[in-house]
Amino acid sequence: MQASIEISMYPLQEDYCQPIIDFIDRLETHSEIRVARNAMSTQVFGEFRTLMSMMTEEVEAVLATQPKTVFVLKLIGTDRSKARIDACSE
């Protein structure tokens, strides 16, 4: 099953930009998923079990070194990478 996850990461510290950039860079090392960056969140697309395994690994790595980090995840059981963003505006 294909899935999509939207990720927002909030390191609760003054210097919060670099940990976010580092996290996204690590996501992009996983060749079996697709990563889309934007100013508000990051989306990852791929096979459900692959995504969940990768998210477990990468979120755990962040929390091990920066436990005061909040993650907000939205998950849907389809590949939304090509979904039209204007579907409701017609």
Score class of each variant (00 low, 15 high):
18 Q>I: 04
4 S>M: 05
88 C>E: 15
26 R>A: 04
34 R>L: 15
25 D>V: 08
27 L>M: 02
86 D>I: 05
89 S>F: 15
55 M>T: 01
47 E>R: 06
72 V>W: 09
78 T>H: 14
49 R>E: 15
47 E>L: 11
85 I>Y: 14
36 A>H: 11
80 R>T: 15
40 M>A: 08
73 L>S: 05
70 V>L: 14
54 M>A: 05
13 Q>F: 02
25 D>L: 07
76 I>N: 11
4 S>L: 00
45 F>S: 01
50 T>I: 07
72 V>L: 11
22 D>I: 04
56 T>P: 10
61 A>P: 04
33 I>Q: 02
53 S>E: 08
1 M>Q: 11
54 M>E: 10
37 R>L: 05
84 R>E: 15
14 E>K: 13
45 F>V: 03
41 S>M: 10
47 E>P: 06
74 K>V: 07
57 E>S: 12
44 V>C: 04
41 S>H: 09
17 C>F: 10
17 C>E: 14
36 A>F: 12
23 F>H: 03
78 T>V: 14
38 N>H: 05
24 I>F: 00
44 V>E: 00
87 A>W: 15
44 V>N: 01
67 P>H: 06
4 S>R: 02
51 L>W: 07
30 H>A: 11
12 L>M: 12
62 V>Y: 08
22 D>A: 08
79 D>Q: 00
22 D>T: 03
43 Q>P: 00
90 E>I: 13
52 M>W: 14
68 K>I: 08
40 M>T: 04
67 P>N: 07
31 S>P: 13
88 C>R: 10
69 T>D: 04
22 D>M: 07
79 D>K: 06
48 F>Q: 09
32 E>H: 08
59 V>R: 08
78 T>M: 09
19 P>H: 04
4 S>I: 05
74 K>Y: 09
26 R>M: 01
54 M>P: 06
20 I>H: 02
65 T>I: 13
25 D>E: 09
2 Q>T: 07
36 A>T: 13
81 S>F: 02
85 I>N: 09
35 V>P: 03
86 D>Q: 07
67 P>K: 05
41 S>D: 05
26 R>S: 02
1 M>E: 11
24 I>V: 12
66 Q>G: 02
70 V>A: 09
26 R>P: 03
68 K>Q: 14
73 L>E: 02
8 S>P: 08
3 A>T: 06
2 Q>H: 14
41 S>E: 03
79 D>T: 05
8 S>C: 11
21 I>E: 01
58 E>R: 05
29 T>Q: 13
71 F>L: 03
60 E>I: 00
38 N>Q: 04
50 T>L: 12
17 C>D: 13
84 R>V: 03
28 E>P: 13
4 S>E: 00
18 Q>C: 06
63 L>H: 05
57 E>M: 08
13 Q>L: 09
88 C>V: 13
90 E>K: 10
59 V>T: 11
12 L>K: 07
62 V>M: 06
68 K>N: 15
13 Q>D: 11
66 Q>H: 11
1 M>H: 12
84 R>K: 14
9 M>Q: 02
67 P>E: 04
46 G>P: 04
55 M>V: 06
44 V>P: 02
53 S>G: 10
58 E>F: 02
3 A>M: 10
29 T>W: 04
55 M>Y: 11
34 R>A: 15
59 V>Y: 10
56 T>H: 15
